[in-house]
Nucleic acid binder design. Structure first.
Length: 582
RNA sequence: CGGGGUGUAGCGCAGUCUGGUUAGCGCGCCUGCUUCGGGAGCAGGAAGUCGGUGGUUCGAAUCCACUCACCCCGACCA
């Protein structure tokens, strides 16, 4: 490839809309073209890098006996109805009818499809265990896409599914996948990626890990223990701290108080001359079938929606609208647990409510609160669970050390699904003893485009990407300074052809442009190795070597005799790749 | 879904409040000359349904109504 023919406009100024570094660079470097909200075309540079990431994925999946298949993007709704997810999943699943009126979906994940494939092809324990995977387009109609390739609606994902005779066998294989994933992210140059325990969410199943690229631009909050190595998504970290006051307090009586115009915790606390940690915060939701749910945490804490959702086994919770409060006997801003119909409301209380005496609660009446609330005394049969967000400094659930908080971008995840799908979709095989059994399943995903974006997030400077050699669209760029001069052009062309022949991903810039322009442009292409051919260097029968990473290995040569360049450069590239892959 | 913002040439923007020749500027693009090691200079040139539809008006990028798209924050999210 020659730069002059490369499709993808590179610009000095980033589009104003892009905020995240990877988003800016993807646009500035002509890697992608946005077609709509969360929908992108990949241009040659982006596509080449994507292909390299996919190649790594394939190698690592094959190394753990994965078998690559390809499933369709469109699936008849029937399959999703069988698993129950057609009903359970909200608007992010795109549903549509074909011309004859049959409902279909755009796959957002492929458990249903893969179970159908396996059903038709597996019947004996002799065939287990196995794993199949694909690299295929997914569509999720996200309510809000953002940050370039980090959160999109249409994306390419590597998704794998394994089938086992026993949960123990799944667990053993799961560990192998976990190790494979670590190798994948290492080979892609993502050193800031950690595996953490996570919620199973809509996938179901019991054990799950997410692979998080640590970044301030991440959308998930992680808690890490520097002492014992515990790390988990905030959604699943249990609260271990005590909420009991330092000294025992006598329990006050419950008392109605007028609190005009105090809708927020802060307003109530100020009005009653107390603090937020002596107020009871109610967070209200509706289930999918419009049943009201209330979660209570102390006023100084945040309610963790995932914890509440899991505790009441709800598929989905949405915030209650203000106009819905009245029909369930309360008022927005003055909601309290006392006096509500327990037949109507599903209520759960955080341990902080149980342990903190004499709380302020809402009076379920405009401008009225109640003081002196003590859960154990005042509400019979209240269900106390862990509902609050853990925050930085809270004790580690494993060892008690203070936790550190970080943000992360989810680049991959793995689930132990168990028999959720093999049961709901009636997938059976015959065991050794002749009995039909549901196989135990695992599933394993990696977002390819998101991984690409994270590579840029980790490896860039103000001039553009600094690609790891393993996933660089081009590993070598040959720059011809003063390409108008025939010896320069000829030398550049000869080296380019020789490197191509040696199998190097090389791009040649023989445009008649100024050196400054050419170098700035090359920075946006981001090849790890740059070879400069110029009249000055030719005079010494040499080529000049530059590396996109400023502090690259000092053993790398800064110039080469031109006669040796074609032979030495492929070795340099291999050395750079080996350094990443270890 | 709520809040905020933006739509004018490939990219970045001015012009809109206060309607008035042919809609401008910078970058990029094309031609020529001179330059030539970190985004060169001069000269000439091409490129626009002013997001869309409807309306007001002698006249609309500009005023009015509706609408679409995208971005940011929140909600949401395997």
């Amino acid at each position: 490839m020659r730069v002059k023919n490369l499709i993808g406009r590179r610009t000095a100024t980033p589009p104003r809309d892009a905020v995240t570094p990877s988003h800016q660079i993807l646009l500035r470097g002509g890697y992608v073209r946005q077609m709509g909200q969360g929908i992108f075309s990949l241009l040659p540079l982006g596509q080449r890098s994507r292909a390299k990431i996919e190649q790594i994925l394939r190698e690592e999946m094959d190394a753990i006996e994965g078998q690559e298949i390809l499933m369709p993007v469109v699936t008849p709704a029937e399959l999703w109805q069988q698993s129950g997810r057609y009903q359970a999943i909200g608007g992010e699943l795109v549903r549509f009818d074909d011309r004859s009126g049959h409902p279909h979906v755009l796959n957002m994940t492929n458990e249903e499809t893969v179970v159908d494939v396996v059903k038709a092809n597996v019947d004996s324990y002799r065939q287990l265990p196995f794993m199949v995977y694909q690299v295929q387009t997914k569509f999720r109609d996200e309510p809000r896409s953002r940050a370039g390739l980090i959160r999109v609606r249409e994306f390419i994902m590597k998704d794998g599914y394994s089938f086992h005779r026993t949960p123990e066998d799944l667990e053993a294989y799961y560990d192998r996948v976990l190790e494979a994933y670590k190798r994948i992210f290492k080979r892609c140059g993502l050193t800031q990626t950690v595996d953490i325990s996570s919620d199973t969410g809509m996938m179901g199943g019991r054990l799950a890990h997410e692979f998080m690229f640590l970044s301030p631009h991440g959308e998930d909050t992680l808690l890490l223990c520097d002492s014992c190595g515990y790390r988990a998504n905030r959604e699943v970290v249990p609260t271990k701290r005590s909420f009991k006051p330092a000294q025992d307090e006598p329990l006050a009586e419950m008392q109605r108080v007028d609190t005009p115009g105090t809708k927020t915790i802060e307003e109530v606390a100020t009005f009653l001359k107390t603090t937020a940690d002596r107020c009871c915060k109610a967070v209200l939701f509706m289930t999918r079938d419009d049943k009201p749910v209330a979660g209570f945490v102390r006023g100084d804490m945040d309610l963790n929606q995932a914890k509440l959702r899991n505790a009441i086994m709800a598929a989905e919770l949405r915030p209650m609208r203000e106009d819905e409060f009245a029909q369930f006997g309360s008022v927005a801003g003055y909601f309290g647990p006392v006096g509500l119909d327990p037949e109507v409301w599903t209520m759960r209380f955080d341990r902080s409510i149980l342990e903190t005496p004499n709380l302020v609660i809402g009076g379920n009446e405009k401008d009225v609160h109640v003081t002196g609330f003590n859960l154990a005394r005042d509400l019979e049969g209240a269900e106390v669970i862990d509902l609050a967000d853990v925050v930085e400094g809270d004790p580690c659930p494993e060892c008690g050390t203070g936790l550190r908080q970080s943000r992360g971008i989810e680049v991959g995840n793995i689930f132990q699904l168990g028999t959720k799908y093999s049961e709901s979709m009636e997938l059976l095989y015959t065991e050794e003893d002749g009995v039909a059994k549901h196989p135990t399943m695992g599933c394993y995903g990696i977002g390819v485009g998101r991984t690409l974006a994270c590579v840029i997030e980790e490896h860039h400077d103000e001039n553009g990407p600094m690609w790891p050699a393993t996933v660089a669209p081009f590993t070598v760029q040959v720059c011809c300074i003063q390409a108008k001069k025939q010896p320069v052009r000829e030398a550049g062309d000869a080296l380019y052809q020789a490197l191509l022949k040696a199998g190097v991903d090389v791009i040649l810039d023989d445009r008649e442009v100024g050196a400054g322009f050419m170098f700035a442009d090359a920075d946006l292409i981001g090849a790890p190795v740059r070879v400069i051919i110029s009249p000055r260097n030719l005079k010494n029968d040499a080529v000049e070597m530059k590396y996109r990473v400023a502090n690259a290995d000092e053993s790398l040569p800064t110039s080469l005799p031109i006669a040796e360049a074609a032979e030495t450069i492929p070795k340099l590239v291999k050395k750079l790749i080996d350094a990443i892959e270890g």
